[in-house]
Design a protein around this nucleic acid. Structure first.
Length: 292
DNA sequence: CCGACCGCCTGCCTGC
DNA sequence: TGCAGGCAGGCGGTCG
């Protein structure tokens, strides 16, 4: 499920199948997801070869020959699975295959014999086919914030980006124009690790001169660590399932506070209990005792 | 400009 | 057992 680590996991899982392959046949089983597919979507993809598969924020970028890029967003419930010949490669948690297939919206048949299927029950995902050139200067990429796992991201950058903001930290961290790729879960987890209250004012990460405060110096590495560990966990799950019954787009990961209302705070020595509150309509989990 | 809120969809879990 | 209601990892548009 798709925040940065999950999208990265999907990217790594699909790369060996997709890169270098050609779309022999593409079938869009409906005209839209969250937004309509572009005109002649399937026809324009047919015959194209995949040159690269990258990620920006929560978007997958499938670079094709002839200068176009397939831009994919998984939304809330989008996932991919791969089938090869007679062997079904199906996530183990999907027991009812017929039910699952009801939401198979786009099917890519590759010239290497693999079939890549995009499934998205809620249809909050999106697919677009755009010119590769200048991609980053156009929506939705123009204005996206820093990649938190890149070298450009550190406490100084975080402080500079948040300076002057009156928004709560939780809200600011979800803003993709500031930091790209965080979603509700990893924001909540990173704030817990940094022992920062989600309601703290984002601007407090910078001092009067715009330099990082202690809070910024705690939060920046916490964000990176949470994401790195999640990517590593996704990767290991994929390794376990490299063979025919592999899975893509899902991995098991345990969270310290997300969805753990009422549990004991896992911070050593803290006697607190995990609480839940709503910020901007979304659940925030935190320890009121040790997050300040 | 900024931040809060709403809608988009379906599935699943809870409580009555 | 059925059903209503609440909730879910996303984003973009509108409104104040």
């Amino acid at each position: 499920m798709p925040e940065l680590p999950e999208v990265e996991t999907v990217r790594r899982g699909l790369a060996p199948t997709l890169i270098g392959a050609r779309f022999a046949k593409v079938e869009a089983r409906r005209g839209d997801l969250r937004a309509p597919f572009p005109p002649r979507f399937a026809a324009r993809l047919t015959g194209r070869r995949v040159e690269a598969l990258t990620r920006r924020a929560k978007y997958l970028l499938v670079a094709l020959d002839k200068g176009e890029t397939l831009v994919i967003h998984l939304g809330m419930s989008g996932s991919f699975r791969v089938e090869r010949g007679d062997v079904l490669v199906t996530p183990p948690f999907h027991h009812e295959r017929a039910k699952l297939a009801a939401h198979d919206h786009v099917v890519f048949d590759l010239d290497n014999g693999a079939r890549v299927i995009f499934n998205d029950p809620r249809r909050f995902g999106s697919m677009d086919l755009v010119q590769s050139e200048g991609l980053e200067t156009r929506p939705p990429f123009a204005g996206l914030g820093v990649e938190p796992l890149s070298e450009d991201f550190d406490a100084a950058r975080l402080a500079a980006d948040f300076a002057g903001s009156r928004a709560p930290l939780k809200t600011a961290l979800l803003d993709q124009t500031r930091i790209a790729g965080l979603g509700n879960i990893y924001v909540v987890e990173a704030l817990f690790r940094a022992r920062l209250k989600p309601t703290r004012i984002a601007g407090e990460l910078a001092d009067a001169k715009g330099k990082p405060t202690a809070a910024a110096r705690a939060l920046a590495p916490a964000i990176r660590e949470v994401l790195k560990e999640a990517v590593a966990a996704g990767g290991s799950t994929l390794r376990d399932h490299r063979q025919p019954d592999g899975e893509l787009g899902y991995f098991q990961h345990s969270f310290a506070v997300y969805d753990r209302e009422g549990a004991a705070c896992p911070h050593r020595g803290c006697k607190g209990t995990i609480a839940r509150m709503v910020q901007g309509g979304r659940s925030t989990f935190y320890c009121a005792t040790c997050q300040k």
